[in-house]
């Protein structure tokens, strides 16, 4: 009798651990599918009426920082407001680390490309910067392979239109507003300001094809 009772108790304990775990995994999976509606079925990015950036292969720290910036409404460009603010509200705090990890592990090929004729000029800027404008080589922070790390985003395979929008839009002050380390997170402001529209398009085109 006692042994039977103990066994049942043990089984209940195991189930109590497993069922929530199974429930959590399901929740993460469903939430991921939700994100993929706009970000692409492999998070490679997607072009609807609007452009959703590639999230696949992004460093976990970068994604978590973006979740935070969006949830706290620091990242406030008009598209973020329309889509990401409601979107993030549907991603409970407890799911975010797991979701960031899932995105990080995806590795699809680049979704679409920018103008091919700009790629070699773009690679030049990526590797060497624009010294006359004090624009450092992107590779210095984003990596030779443009895979980023920690809080520095991956750029390889990013949607062309998105990269152009971000670089050209930096002057509008929508990004880089982390109150804890404003200097660090707004590193890009003078860099984006030092690039011409043509240079921005070239770099974006180059990056859109990188794996």
């Amino acid at each position: 009798m006692k042994a039977g009772g103990l066994r049942i108790a043990l089984q209940m304990a195991v189930l109590a651990v497993l069922i929530p775990a199974a429930g959590f995994a399901d929740e993460v999976k469903e939430k991921l599918e939700y994100c993929k509606n706009c970000h692409g079925n492999q998070a490679q990015g997607f072009q609807g009426y609007y452009t959703a950036p590639r999230l696949a292969g992004q460093p976990v720290q970068y994604l978590e920082n973006q979740f935070e910036a969006l949830a706290k409404h620091r990242r406030d460009n008009p598209i973020a407001q329309q889509f990401m603010w409601p979107g993030i509200e549907g991603v409970p705090q407890g799911l975010r680390a797991a979701i960031a990890k899932q995105f990080n592990e995806l590795n699809p090929p680049p979704a679409d490309g920018g103008p091919r004729n700009l790629v070699s000029a773009g690679k030049d800027i990526y590797d060497k910067g624009v010294p006359d404008e004090n624009v450092p080589a992107c590779a210095v922070c984003h990596g030779q392979d443009a895979h980023g790390n920690d809080q520095v985003p991956r750029l390889a395979g990013q949607m062309y239109a998105y990269t152009v929008e971000q670089l050209a839009g930096w002057e509008k002050g929508y990004r880089g507003k982390d109150p804890v380390s404003p200097g660090e997170t707004n590193t890009m402001q003078p860099i984006a300001a030092g690039m011409t529209k043509d240079q921005i398009r070239a770099v974006a085109a180059y990056l859109s094809y990188q794996r």
Binding site: N37, C38, G48, Y49, F83, P86, G87
Partner: peptide, 18 residues
């Protein structure tokens, strides 16, 4: 405009326009 995030329904306007 906003979908129903808690039910994992995306915003239609993302693909179909504002």
């Amino acid at each position: 405009r906003h979908g129903v995030p808690n039910d994992n329904i995306p915003a239609c306007q993302f693909c179909h326009g504002p």
